[in-house]
Computed example of a mutant assay.
Amino acid sequence: MRAAVLTEFGAPLTVQEMPDPVAGGGEVVVQVLAGCVPPYAEEVFNGRRNYPLEPPVVPGTGGVGRIVSIGPDATRLRVGDLVWCDCTVRSRDDALTPDITLQGWSSRGDGGARLARHLHDGSFAELMRVPTENVYALPTEAEGDPARWSSLGVYVIPYGGLLAGGLEAGETLLVSGATGNLGSAAVATALAMGAGRVVTPGRNRAVLDLLADRFGPRVRPVQLTGDEDADRTAMSAAAGGPIDMVIDLLPPAAPSSAARAAAMTVREYGRVVLMGGVGMLGGADLALPYPWIMRNSVTVRGQWMYPRSANVGMIRLVASGALDLNAEWVRTFPLDAVNDAVEYAAAHGGPFDRTVLAPPAN
């Protein structure tokens, strides 16, 4: 097979011939049809994000594919099935606190690193070996546009955070980082789940207007100024009532003050879910006040990625039409143009803008 390989941090990816992967017990091999290229991929490959990848490695964050072989323990999947491949791989020997690796992308701790060495390569390839439990059958409507359905990898991340926070129909949600790639996906997903109102703070007026135009009056945009107190007041006022939940999806370069201002808009007994990258590149800590959390009975929790069940829920949301992918801007690149795809993704990381690597010839 052919695959795009990161040979060292700071070097361009190179397309190489590699041995075809072989499915062992508990594994499936898929022909990769489409996989999203994250807007921050360039920062991973040049080493700026300091991800624990071990070159040489085939990167990639899952995608849509077609099964070409299965291990002996698969009972429902069949060769030829169109499937979604989730990159979030969990160890099988600890049900309570499993080690986690993002196949072909990142990992957590020593256990995650060991898991990453076994499932080393991701979706920037013609073929990919995936754990059986990470493969999900897609509905027939996905057959016509695998590239568009590869956006599942974007939406399922904030969906995991919304599930972690227990978002309920009719509630008011504030999305911190709403004008970004993941934040805008959180807005769309929350509305598909039945959120009554979604407060969308950000600095980019054009993107705020785009969100309001696309989703209507349930979206409450707020233009941020950088003044923490003033921004908190403006966000609270825009909600038109109590804010039940805040989800933070700000990128690593964002100041902690922006995340704190958003979090502290939540009502008494409200929930705050932290999923962004604030502090990952250094800088001040989030520093939420202890008395505020305690006296207001606020629940603050972190959420890295999502549970396995989120994949099923997200596929259902899209298949039902509750979450519409037709408004996505999708630009596909063949495998040979992988470096062009990475460069394009970095320049097109706005709301509903997807860069997709499609290994078969376009």
Rank of each mutant, 00 (worst) to 15 (best):
L274W: 06
L274H: 05
L274E: 07
L274R: 00
M275G: 02
M275D: 01
M275I: 06
M275L: 13
G276Q: 07
G276R: 04
G276A: 08
G276I: 09
G276F: 09
G277D: 06
G277C: 09
G277F: 04
G277Q: 04
G277T: 02
G277H: 01
V278N: 05
V278K: 07
V278P: 08
V278Y: 12
V278I: 15
V278F: 09
V278E: 03
V278Q: 03
G279Q: 09
G279E: 06
G279M: 10
G279I: 09
G279H: 08
G279V: 09
G279N: 09
G279P: 09
M280E: 12
M280H: 04
M280W: 06
M280D: 08
M280L: 15
L281C: 00
L281V: 02
L281P: 00
G282R: 02
G283K: 08
G283V: 11
G283N: 07
G283T: 11
A284P: 10
A284T: 12
A284C: 02
A284W: 05
D285W: 10
D285L: 14
D285R: 14
D285E: 12
L286K: 11
L286F: 12
A287H: 11
A287N: 13
L288E: 08
P289V: 06
P289S: 02
Y290G: 01
Y290C: 00
Y290S: 00
Y290H: 01
P291K: 02
P291V: 04
P291M: 02
P291T: 06
W292P: 00
W292F: 15
W292V: 12
W292G: 01
W292Q: 11
W292D: 10
W292T: 15
I293T: 12
I293D: 01
I293N: 01
I293G: 00
M294V: 14
R295T: 14
R295Y: 13
R295C: 03
R295S: 10
R295K: 10
R295V: 08
R295M: 13
R295F: 15
N296E: 08
N296A: 07
S297D: 11
S297L: 13
V298W: 06
T299S: 10
T299E: 04
T299P: 00
V300F: 07
V300G: 03
V300Y: 06
V300S: 04
R301K: 13
G302V: 07
G302E: 04
Q303P: 07
Q303T: 05
Q303A: 12
W304Y: 14
W304A: 04
W304R: 01
M305I: 10
M305R: 10
M305L: 14
Y306Q: 04
Y306R: 02
Y306C: 03
Y306G: 02
P307T: 12
P307Y: 14
P307M: 10
P307A: 14
P307L: 11
P307R: 13
P307C: 12
R308Q: 13
R308V: 06
S309I: 09
S309M: 08
S309D: 12
A310R: 04
A310W: 12
A310I: 10
N311K: 00
N311A: 14
N311E: 07
N311I: 01
